[in-house]
């Protein structure tokens, strides 16, 4: 066997090589640019939340405007088959948006009302808990972000999400996009995507597309800011959230 002295010699030698290697890699590695910073114009918030005033959505067009604004700008493919469709924001009726509540005895108006559904950006999001690669993660401002570069397509988040908000690209998405928005990328086969609260717009100081397109029917703001508009509407109206009993703390509120 190897003697102690030999061992010491070898380990010294090895660490020398290792050290040398590390130093040379550091020295040789070309670091890109000077710095990358946040935009000073970016919207600043500690916990983004959304309140959808369901009373104000009257016509089909009201919904479609919002949905179209989102889907067109985000290059969301239009797949007809509901089994494999991709949707970031969509509508459903009361019974299926809020299953398990006493829908039978609720007012007819509400019962027949349509509700805009999207990712709830839960404060305690199960999807981020289960993701094995941190492809979906919570941003500091509360957005449940989806990193499409990193997603491995394991679909665990889809099992984890209690709101059906996540979409897997079962089909090559580009085949189903009629008109591409050159400002925004598409996704590829085999990754999961969903609403990101338009993080790219917030970072530049703009409101999400849906908020913009709703013309005041959707209120977006920082929940931690006492003076924000959203706090105001939440405190002044009756609001409900989807499946609060699961403890996920959804950040999308419905004013009814």
């Amino acid at each position: 066997m190897i003697s102690r002295r030999d061992f010491l010699k070898i380990s010294a030698f090895a660490s020398l090589i290792g050290l040398g290697g590390a130093i040379s890699i550091n020295a040789l590695e070309k670091k890109p640019g000077k710095n990358v910073l946040k935009d000073i114009n970016a919207l600043k918030g500690k916990r983004w939340a959304m309140a959808i005033d369901t009373r104000k959505f009257k016509t089909q067009e009201d919904f479609e405007k919002v949905i179209r604004a989102c889907h067109k700008n985000h290059n969301v493919p239009e797949i007809a088959n509901p089994l494999h469709e991709v949707k970031w924001i969509w509508t459903d009726d009361y019974e299926h948006s809020f299953p398990g509540t006493a829908e039978h005895y609720i007012s007819k108006d509400i019962k027949e009302r349509k509700f805009l559904l999207l990712c709830n950006h839960c404060d305690n999001a199960p999807c981020t808990r289960v993701c094995p690669v941190k492809a979906t993660f919570k941003r500091e401002d509360g957005i449940t972000m989806q990193d499409m570069h990193r997603c491995i397509g394991c679909k665990f988040c889809m099992a984890g999400c209690p709101y059906g908000a996540r979409n897997y690209n079962f089909l090559p998405p580009r085949d189903y996009i009629k008109e591409l928005n050159p400002e925004y990328p598409t996704r590829t086969l085999g990754v999961v995507e969903k609403c990101t609260f338009c993080n790219q717009r917030i970072d530049k100081g703009l409101l999400p597309y849906c908020v913009e397109a709703s013309e005041g029917k959707i209120i977006f703001g920082d929940l931690f800011d006492m003076n924000s508009e959203i706090r105001k509407v939440l405190s002044e109206n009756i609001v409900i959230r989807r499946k609060v009993e699961l403890g996920t703390q959804p950040m999308v509120f419905y004013i009814i």
């Binding site: 808990r129 690669v133 394991c154 679909k155």
Partner: peptide
């Protein structure tokens, strides 16, 4: 069986490159 469900199998090493202890898949691996 897990590998074949991956939509992006070539990225599977991300599980090790970005270890995520709060994910059960990581522990399963």
């Amino acid at each position: 069986s897990v590998f074949v469900i991956m939509g992006q199998p070539s990225r599977v090493w991300n599980v090790i490159l970005h270890p995520t202890p709060h994910s059960i898949i990581f522990w399963d691996m």
